[in-house]
Every structure is written in C-alpha cells, then in structure tokens.
C-alpha cells in the first residue's frame, strides 16, 4: 500500500512538473502571438514621444491619451459630436463589412456547388479530369495579383465597376473561390456517397439529397470556409487600393493612407487598426471551434 502510494506520488510530481513546462511554453507562445495586438491597442493611446521612445506599459511607461481615438472621432469627448473622420471611418468600415460578407457568402455558395460536383461526378473538360480541374482552380492562387492589375483596371473601367462595392465583391469572390472549392471538396469527400444513395432511395431528387442530407452534414466545413473567406477579404489591400477611390474604399486602404506627407500618424493608425482587427478577434473567439471542426477532415461521420 505504502509503495503504491509512493509511486502515485512520484507520478503526480512528474505529471505536475511536465504540466508546468508545457503550460509555461504555451503561455510564452501566447504572449508572442498576442503582443502585436497589445502593441497596436496601446499605441492608439500614445502620443508621439511614447511611440518613438518605445514605451510599452500604460501608466508606468506613459500616460494613456485619447489622441488616436479622437482623430477618428471615437474618443469619449468626441463621440457625441459630429465628426468627419468618424463618418469616413464608419463608411470604410461598412464597405469592408459588406464587401467581405457578400464576397464570402457568394464564394461559399458557388464554391460548394463546384466542390460537390468535383467530389461526386466525373467530368471531362477536354483532356482534363476532375483532379486536373481541381488543380486548375487552385492554380489560380499561384498567379500574383499584380499580373491582373492592368487587365482588371481596364475591364472594370469598361464595365463601370470601378469604385463600386459590387466590383469589389466580384473580385473578392474570385480570389477566395479556389480556397473555398478546395476546402469544400475535402469536406464532401469525407461524406460517404451511400448517404446520397440512401436519400435517393428514400425519395429525394439529386438536388434535395444535396440540400437536405449533404449540406447539413457539410455545414461545419462551410462555416470554416466562410470565416476564412471573410478574413481574407477583410485583410485584402491590393485590389481595394487599385479599384476603389472614394465611395467604395475599404479599411485597409484607409489604414495605409495614414502615412501622410507630414510623417506617420501612429496613434490614429493604431486606433484604426484596432477597430479593423476587432471583428476578426470576435470571429476568432466565438467561431474558432467551427474553423477547427470544419478543417479537421473526417470529423463528420
């Protein structure tokens, strides 16, 4: 009895020390990962001196100041008043939200249909089979967007899509579509075809089998693809800078434009960035489990 007691004591001591090491490393890694967010957030409360001297800890290194937030009209003293910068910010924010959500939704709908086809039916497009077609979709990511800059500028000019939200939604849909197709194809591949066949025998048509049986099962993957698309579109800068000017400009472009001729407005840039990453943080915290679930193959069985 005493011996087993000693042994379990030894095991638990080893267990605890290994836990301490593991958690220590994880905490260190979390600090490294979260530091840029912390730095951006605190910088929005700094003045020029604090920024250049690298002060980090509020109330110890520097005294927090609302200057950054005041510059976009979101500090406590300016929030009630009319503010042009705030209107500008809210407009950009709205543009970003609408462009990302619509593009992601469109990409998930189109991409799911394409992926389902690639997963279930055998296509022949010239010499290309399903595998080649899938690779063709994915290969669109290899092309650097810069190559497309001129053609798209000309195309959008002709179609009168320049500086419109619709134009932005269309190009964002196009850029995230390959990733959505890839994720959703993997998702559909994990679902046994017998499920559709059972549904067909049970009285479904091909479409209702897809909508009533397959889609609900593939939902975690769709949510993951949707979130990933939103994040990618939200962060997109190049096409936004290229194809929009005044009315459809998005947040990343506005953040970048804070580097004016009189130097960089660190505080307002930091305040803008904080506001810009906030939705992503919310997504990350609340929907993270869907992303993990959706991206883990074989989770649906």
């Amino acid at each position: 009895m005493g011996r087993t007691g000693a042994r379990t004591g030894g095991i638990s001591a080893r267990y605890f020390s290994s836990r301490i090491v593991i958690y220590g490393l994880l905490i260190l890694w979390a600090i490294i990962c979260l530091f840029p967010i912390y730095w951006t957030f605190t910088t929005s409360f700094k003045v020029a001196v604090n920024v250049t001297q690298g002060h980090l800890i509020p109330w110890v290194d520097f005294t927090p100041d609302w200057r950054g937030w005041r510059s976009i009209g979101l500090s406590p003293d300016t929030i009630g008043e009319t503010s042009t910068p705030r209107e500008e910010f809210l407009k950009r924010f709205e543009n970003s939200i609408i462009a990302s959500l619509c593009a992601a939704a469109l990409a998930v709908v189109i991409g799911s249909c394409a992926a389902y086809g690639l997963s279930r039916f055998n296509y022949k497009f010239g010499p290309m089979r399903n595998k080649d077609i899938s690779f063709f979709f994915l290969s669109q990511l290899i092309l650097p967007p810069v190559v497309l800059a001129m053609p798209f500028l000309v195309l959008y000019k002709e179609l009168a899509l320049l500086d419109t939200r619709i134009g932005l939604i269309l190009i964002y849909t196009l850029t995230v579509l390959p990733i959505v197709i890839w994720i959703m194809r993997d998702q559909f591949d994990t679902i046994p075809t017998e499920l559709e066949q059972a549904a067909l025998v049970d009285g479904c048509s091909a479409w209702s089998a897809f909508l009533r049986i397959i889609l609900p099962i593939a939902l975690p993957g769709m949510v993951a693809a949707f979130i990933l698309s939103v994040i990618l579109c939200w962060n997109e800068y190049f096409f936004a800078a290229l194809l929009t000017s005044t009315s459809a400009k998005t947040l990343p472009v506005m953040v970048a434009s804070q580097t004016g001729s009189q130097g960089i407005n660190w505080w307002s840039m930091a305040a803008l960035s904080t506001a810009a990453i906030l939705p992503l943080i919310v997504i990350g915290i609340f929907l993270e489990r869907y992303i993990v679930k959706g991206l883990t193959a074989g989770s649906v069985k």
């Binding site: 046994p192 025998v201 009285g203 049986i213 099962i217 069985k301």
Partner: peptide, 29 residues
C-alpha cells in the same frame, strides 16, 4: 428514378443520416 421505384435499401455501412436522430432517420422517407 430510385425514388419512384418504391424500394428500400439497406447499405453495408448503414448510411444513416448522422445529423438526424433515430426517429428522424426512420421517418425521413
């Protein structure tokens, strides 16, 4: 079409709908 043949099929891997409970699986048809 399979749905118009009035047949019922039991598959090797059962092919139960994972997002439906037993009653809904049985009542789906």
């Amino acid at each position: 079409e399979p749905k118009d043949r009035d047949i019922a099929m039991v598959f090797q891997n059962y092919a139960l709908y994972p997002h439906k409970n037993v009653a809904d699986n049985m009542g789906f048809a």
